[in-house]
Structures are given as C-alpha cells and as structure tokens.
Lab assay of single mutants.
Amino acid sequence: MKHYEVEILDAKTREKLCFLDKVEPHATIAEIKNLFTKTHPQWYPARQSLRLDPKGKSLKDEDVLQKLPVGTTATLYFRDLGAQISWVTVFLTEYAGPLFIYLLFYFRVPFIYGHKYDFTSSRHTVVHLACICHSFHYIKRLLETLFVHRFSHGTMPLRNIFKNCTYYWGFAAWMAYYINHPLYTPPTYGAQQVKLALAIFVICQLGNFSIHMALRDLRPAGSKTRKIPYPTKNPFTWLFLLVSCPNYTYEVGSWIGFAIMTQCLPVALFSLVGFTQMTIWAKGKHRSYLKEFRDYPPLRMPIIPFLL
C-alpha cells in the first residue's frame, strides 16, 4: 500500500511549517490536523484551516487524503483561524445574560430607577406577564442548547462571544429598562391586545421548539449528516411545506408577539434587527439546500412563505 507525503505551508508566506512522512492514504484531514498539532501545539485542530490552494476553501475534517486531487506528495496550505471557543459555551453565555439582566430590572434592584423604587413591584399585569415570557424564552434556549441542538461545527472564533453578548445583553437591558420602569405605560388596547400578543408568542414558541426537535431527529448524534427536513405529524412542522427555516419564522413571530404585548420600541427594534439577521441566515441555508439536494422542494422560500 502506497503512503503519502504531506507538506504543510503557510498560506500567506509559503513557508514550510511541517512535513509529514508515510501518511496513510485513508487518513482524514482531521487526522492530519492532529499530526500537525504534534509539531505545532500552539495551533490545536480547531484553529487550523487546511486547504489545497492558499486562497481556496477550507477542507472538511472528514475529507480523505486519497480522494483529494493531489499526488502522493501533497501540499496543503495552513491558515490560523485564531483562538476558538465551543458553540455550546457561546450559546449558554449569550442566553444566560439576558435572563439575569432582565430580572435585575424586573425586581428593580438599587441604583436603576431611584431609591424610592428599590425592590418595588409594578401594578401592571402586563409587566409581570412580559417577565414570565422573556424568562421562559431564554430558559427554553438554554435547555435546547444543552439537550436538543446538535452542532455541525464544534467551535467558533473567540471574538464572537463578545459580539454576541453585546447584542443580546445590550438589547435585554434596553428593553427591560423601559418595560419595568415605574412610569411604564400599558398597551393602548389593554387586555385584548395583551391576550392576542400572548397567543402569538406561545404559538410561536411551541412552533420553534417543534422545529428544533424535528431538525434534531434528522441528524444522528456525533454526525454531520444533512438531510432535507420534511413536515412530521406535528402540525407545527407543517411550515416546512413553505419555508426552509421555519425555526427562524417562529422565532421572529415570538418577538413580534412580545413587541405587541409590551408596546415597547426597543423590543420592536430588537425584532427588526433579529429578523434582518435571521433572513440572512435563512437565505444562506436555503441556497445550501438547493445546491446540495437536486430534489429539494421548489415551493419553499427561505423564511416567509411566498415572499422571502
């Protein structure tokens, strides 16, 4: 059985960083990364991007050496992705923050609204209902991160945790300040508006959870398998008939419901920014589905049925 020789060059300087002799033909890129780490321990596998061309796409960890368009002496180019952190850690951090930050404003801890309001309670029912909904949303997200989601990528750049936390924590503080303010004004149409908004919120939260469970069942634990998601017997998953990412559709719907319930401008802005970002993600995933699966359902749109 022939063996391969693998040289790894710096993608920027073309400097030879490592030479691997007698590499098995069936070795994966993940195994080559581990061998590279032995000579350069500062670059652990998650930091490494190996590619066939200095400006090309990163090879997948599961790619097999003998199936790549290389000879028995293969040249790979290395790029440092920077310090990495696990997706689970990032999600837990960015979701735990809003949960606790919101509660600080809800309980009106000292130095927020003035001494005479310390630890007082709002007289408006919608304020307490909003706290329950907000807390439920982020507790749900935390539990899904721990027990439901299966991540195709193990890590992301460390800098992302600061960007994500600034976004989630900042908006949580902004909306919580106004919703729990002693001078907060309840919704214009009173109980009817709150009940309608609560119904929207609850339905969308159930829908979002149902989609996450359906997506989880598509991917076996520990794998990166991708399949076309289809509706199940659960009615909340029937939205798969019309959109590629109904989890985002339901998520946006939840925040629209919360915005109607609280009639709070920061919540509306958070919903708008979230919708914009999720639309970008949904379009990317939709394109990926179309590219990977020739039999992908043609009627589906990325996030909004028939429109977007």
Rank of each mutant, 00 (worst) to 15 (best):
P231E: 15
F240P: 14
Y178I: 14
V90F: 05
G170W: 14
E5F: 00
C133P: 01
V23R: 01
L146Q: 01
Y296M: 01
A11E: 01
L81E: 01
T188P: 11
L104D: 13
S49N: 03
W281F: 13
W281G: 03
V267P: 14
L198N: 14
K140N: 02
Y178Q: 04
V88M: 08
H115S: 02
F270P: 02
P187L: 10
K285T: 13
T249D: 14
L20W: 12
A268S: 08
F119R: 05
S58F: 07
F107Y: 00
E31R: 06
G222K: 00
F105G: 15
L242R: 06
K291N: 11
F136G: 01
K16F: 09
G222F: 13
I200L: 04
L59P: 09
H3S: 08
L299K: 11
N208K: 08
V267G: 07
L239Q: 05
C131Q: 13
G56K: 04
Y184H: 09
E94A: 02
C131N: 14
E94P: 14
M213V: 10
L239W: 04
R150I: 15
L50F: 10
K140E: 03
E292H: 12
S135G: 03
S223G: 08
E251T: 14
P235T: 04
V64Y: 15
K22M: 07
A268Y: 13
I260N: 10
E5L: 10
V127K: 01
I161V: 11
A221P: 10
S223A: 09
A74D: 01
T145A: 11
L9W: 08
C133Q: 10
I203D: 15
I211M: 11
L52T: 15
R123Q: 09
K233V: 15
L68M: 06
S152F: 11
V6R: 08
P297T: 01
R226L: 10
I101Q: 00
G257N: 09
E62G: 11
W174R: 05
F91W: 12
L239G: 14
K2N: 07
L50M: 13
Y248F: 12
E24F: 13
M156L: 03
F100K: 07
P302S: 11
L50Q: 01
L99F: 11
A214V: 11
M278N: 03
K140S: 15
Y117H: 11
F293I: 08
I139N: 14
P302L: 12
K60C: 12
H137Y: 05
I29R: 04
R108N: 01
K224Q: 05
Y44Q: 05
Y102D: 05
V23S: 01
H3P: 12
R159M: 00
A130P: 02
K57S: 15
F240Y: 10
N180D: 03
Q66D: 00
H137Q: 10
L103D: 00
E292G: 08
Y230M: 07
V126L: 10
A27E: 13
V6F: 00
A130S: 09
M278K: 09
E62W: 00
Y184S: 05
V126F: 14
L17M: 02
S49E: 12
P186T: 00
D10A: 05
G190C: 14
T125A: 07
C131Y: 05
I32R: 06
S254I: 13
T225S: 11
H134A: 07
P98C: 13
M175F: 00
Y178E: 00
V6G: 04
T120A: 06
P45Y: 02
P45T: 02
I161L: 14
L290Y: 07
M278G: 10
Y102M: 03
